[in-house]
Nucleic acid binder design. Structure first.
Lengths: 213, 213
DNA sequence: CCCGAATGTGTACATCGTACACAACGGGTG
DNA sequence: CACCCGTTGTGTACGATGTACACATTCGGG
């Protein structure tokens, strides 16, 4: 009994889609326990394969984690895009630009709240986070979270809502604020806030950013 | 030759100050490699003691890491206090309050830049970060970084620089912004910035916070 | 002086990442 | 169609880590 525990123990010698299977397994591990939970042996176990098989597709654990991280970042981008897509249509271009800007931050914070493990994994990045611009982190629109923010800021400038001389570097200021709040919400003193309180805190923060940019 | 490799291999059976020795060793590990580098066996090795000796003073690795984290947070507080102490004396109370507020952020960012490993360890906090208010995280003035920020904000209110109705929750907005920038500077896309560029970015961010609070 | 509580040691085990040698597959060339 | 070799998975092995359990040593009071 219990011959095949959960997994059907693939009959073929070849797996066929191991790399993807490992990333998917890693994604699930990350969802539940954040980046440190993305464990090579657990992923291979889930895929029904020997631990070392992973090394045919990833140089080491860090490489797998990186792939998982990129996928998590793409999910962040998709959440942002969804937030923007859900916006009510507006005739006023300035109001529309402002709403799109706020949706970027709101989507970011929503994702952090709903999927803290994946969020931490997305922005974990040991060593170098320059991958924030890699295509593999893009969402449906082909834009990474960072690029979505930049586009929203450009929209503010175009509609005269943000002085052009304040534009350079603005993404870092806005990102800092929102990212910092996400950190406080996830495992900071703000953890345990009710969802609507979280939403309020996010709106207050974005208010501050809009005023201060 | 090489009988005692580095450590003099304590003659006495009792160590006498193991708990502190472990925290100190952990602090050094954290400085070099961040929280994940705080390894029980390495700390005991450094203290010249068997691995299990640590369990007489800490429930597990997490407990040691927590102690190290609190000490790192105290160092953050001291850096903030030093930044405030270095301020030129001013007659104008409003200007003084503002300068003290800015010094809180500047000290925070300075520490993040100068001691990234310790900084990450200070605000690592797996599970619950409510310890940010524990006395063990206080600096020379007896205040934790969080309390120093609160006091600076109170000063802004007293001098009329910040409307009282904006005060509630303001520490979270300010902290979010500064903490987020620290994250981007340490292992985000802003890593590798020159120290003076870092300083400029910090001042810009604090400008934004002042305008937006 | 002597005995119990506090502190450190020794041994042991599960889990992890990963190196190295071997095995099974399967597609291209003859 | 047969063979052969590169790709992909397996097996075995090693060192490191956290930690449990039993034992040894020491110190401070009675």
């Amino acid at each position: 009994m219990a011959a095949d525990a959960g997994k059907p123990k693939r009959g073929t010698y070849r797996h066929g889609d191991l790399r993807n299977a490992l990333v998917r397994a890693g994604l699930e591990l990350a969802r539940q326990g954040g980046p440190e939970a993305v464990v090579l042996r657990a992923a291979t176990r889930e895929a029904g394969v020997a631990p070392n098989a992973a090394y045919r597709h990833f140089a080491d654990r860090a490489a797998l984690l990186h792939a998982v991280s990129q996928e998590a970042m793409a999910q962040v981008a998709r959440t942002m895009e969804a937030e923007q897509a859900a916006l009510p249509p507006t005739a006023d271009p300035a109001a529309a630009a402002r709403a799109r800007f706020r949706a970027v931050g709101t989507g970011y914070l929503r994702f952090a709240q709903e999927e803290p493990g994946l969020f931490r994994t997305a922005f974990h990045v040991p060593g170098d986070m320059s991958h924030a611009a890699d295509d593999s982190a893009a969402g449906g629109s082909g834009k990474t979270p960072f690029e979505l923010l930049g586009a929203a800021l450009d929209g503010l400038v175009e509609t005269g809502r943000l002085p052009a001389d304040r534009r350079p570097g603005a993404e870092f200021l806005a990102w800092s604020a929102v990212h910092g709040l996400a950190a406080l919400l996830i495992d900071g003193p703000l953890r345990g806030l009710q969802p609507d309180q979280v939403h309020d805190a996010g709106q207050h923060l974005i208010d501050m950013v809009e005023r201060g940019l």
